[in-house]
Computed example of a mutant assay.
Amino acid sequence: MEQPKPRPVTIRDVAALAGVSAGTASKALNNQGQLRQETRDRVLAAAKGLKFRPNETARSLGSERTFTVGLLTTDSIGRFSIPVLLGAEDALAAGTILVFLCDTREDPIRERHYVETLLSRRVDGFIVTGRRSDPRTPLAVDVPVPVVYALTPSSDPADCSVVADDEQAGRLAGEHLIATGRSAIAHITGPASFDAVGNRERGLRTALSSSGLSLVGPGVLYGEWSEAWGRRAAQILLRSGAQFDGVYCGSDQIARGAAEVLAASGRAVPDDVALVGTDNWDILVEGRTPTLTTIDLNLHEVGRRAAQRLLAAIDGEPTQGLETCPSRLVMRESTELQRVRD
């Protein structure tokens, strides 16, 4: 039986053995950059020991920058990737770096094609993002340039990832509802399989528990990320007979649907029920009456920090691990203080 051919040694293998970034390894091999001689010697020894033969893409890294970055996303509608992109561009603009935005549509073959095409154009690095915060597998292509994952983290803890704080989002929502006088709080959210859903629920329960409270209603209502689900879930909550004066929704879409049903049933927002959403999606939170209090996941900052980490990696600084960006509460009319009744 024919034995499989061994995988070619790459710049990342050399970098791992030498304990440096891929950018630093390439600079050392090309006699570029201001590196300590000890670092340069360690990289050269690792390359020799692994019998490394550099390809042209790897050779260009550290010797000739193109001042371009590839941003790969699975978010076809751009709701999450656009704020990340804008934040990244804010950080990259100081270095006059251009960004190529590619929508992979969650297709591994398409993603591989984009990576290989952008590498042929000698991009200096990649930012990888998506529409959900569940960990994803690292890029399938062996990439000789730095990669930073934004919002959607890499499943490899050795990679560099910058994410939103979903648990803090739930905690902020709970603390705010309690601070405005609510003590019977329900939770309507998205699919239970999403990491963000579990993290937001955990944060909400933490806030309630700290005040001696627990969730009310027929349990957490899991469903789709849609206004239609928000309407159905609010109907379920009302039919359950549970007494509630506050609802935290896992998205602004869900909150908008819930608000419609609450209004139709005679439950005024915020007088009878305070409502908090998630995402701070302007067309939803400002396009209704009353306007919607929500939790902003700070995606612009996620993109900005991811770009900063990428720039550091391109400059040869070791960059890895998980960084979490704080969420923030945006108060509007749907959670005004309860009025004192006669």
Rank of each mutant, 00 (worst) to 15 (best):
residue 58 A to K: 02
residue 35 L to N: 04
residue 16 A to T: 11
residue 51 K to N: 14
residue 43 V to F: 05
residue 107 D to R: 06
residue 46 A to R: 03
residue 93 A to M: 10
residue 45 A to Y: 00
residue 71 L to H: 02
residue 60 S to R: 14
residue 122 R to S: 10
residue 126 F to V: 01
residue 92 L to D: 01
residue 131 R to Y: 14
residue 108 P to E: 10
residue 51 K to C: 09
residue 113 H to R: 15
residue 43 V to H: 02
residue 28 A to L: 08
residue 27 K to M: 15
residue 88 A to W: 04
residue 33 G to H: 08
residue 110 R to T: 14
residue 49 G to I: 01
residue 28 A to K: 02
residue 45 A to F: 07
residue 42 R to T: 09
residue 72 L to C: 05
residue 78 G to Q: 08
residue 75 D to T: 10
residue 47 A to D: 02
residue 39 T to L: 07
residue 93 A to D: 14
residue 18 A to S: 11
residue 118 L to F: 09
residue 20 V to Y: 03
residue 130 G to Y: 06
residue 54 P to R: 08
residue 68 T to E: 11
residue 84 V to K: 02
residue 96 T to P: 01
residue 75 D to Q: 10
residue 39 T to V: 14
residue 38 E to R: 14
residue 101 L to Y: 09
residue 64 E to S: 10
residue 122 R to V: 03
residue 24 T to S: 11
residue 18 A to F: 02
residue 69 V to H: 05
residue 68 T to S: 15
residue 28 A to E: 00
residue 58 A to S: 15
residue 116 E to Q: 15
residue 51 K to L: 09
residue 56 E to D: 13
residue 55 N to C: 07
residue 78 G to C: 10
residue 73 T to H: 07
residue 60 S to Q: 11
residue 61 L to T: 04
residue 57 T to L: 13
residue 76 S to T: 14
residue 97 I to D: 04
residue 80 F to L: 12
residue 73 T to N: 07
residue 66 T to K: 12
residue 128 V to K: 05
residue 50 L to R: 05
residue 27 K to G: 00
residue 97 I to G: 00
residue 114 Y to M: 06
residue 40 R to C: 04
residue 81 S to C: 15
residue 86 L to R: 15
residue 64 E to V: 00
residue 120 S to Q: 15
residue 98 L to C: 08
residue 68 T to L: 06
residue 74 T to A: 13
residue 16 A to H: 11
residue 96 T to I: 08
residue 16 A to K: 12
residue 64 E to M: 04
residue 38 E to A: 15
residue 29 L to T: 04
residue 91 A to G: 09
residue 49 G to Y: 03
residue 65 R to D: 00
residue 73 T to R: 01
residue 25 A to V: 06
residue 44 L to I: 14
residue 110 R to G: 02
residue 112 R to D: 15
residue 54 P to D: 10
residue 92 L to I: 06
residue 41 D to Y: 02
residue 28 A to I: 07
residue 83 P to I: 01
residue 39 T to K: 01
residue 32 Q to F: 03
residue 99 V to K: 03
residue 20 V to I: 09
residue 27 K to H: 08
residue 120 S to L: 11
residue 128 V to R: 05
residue 132 R to E: 12
residue 29 L to P: 01
residue 80 F to C: 04
residue 113 H to L: 12
residue 18 A to L: 05
residue 124 D to P: 06
residue 115 V to R: 03
residue 52 F to R: 01
residue 54 P to G: 10
residue 102 C to F: 09
residue 128 V to S: 08
residue 60 S to Y: 00
residue 103 D to P: 00
residue 100 F to W: 10
residue 118 L to Y: 08
residue 75 D to I: 06
residue 50 L to E: 01
residue 52 F to C: 00
residue 97 I to R: 10
residue 131 R to I: 08
residue 76 S to Q: 13
residue 65 R to G: 12
residue 33 G to E: 05
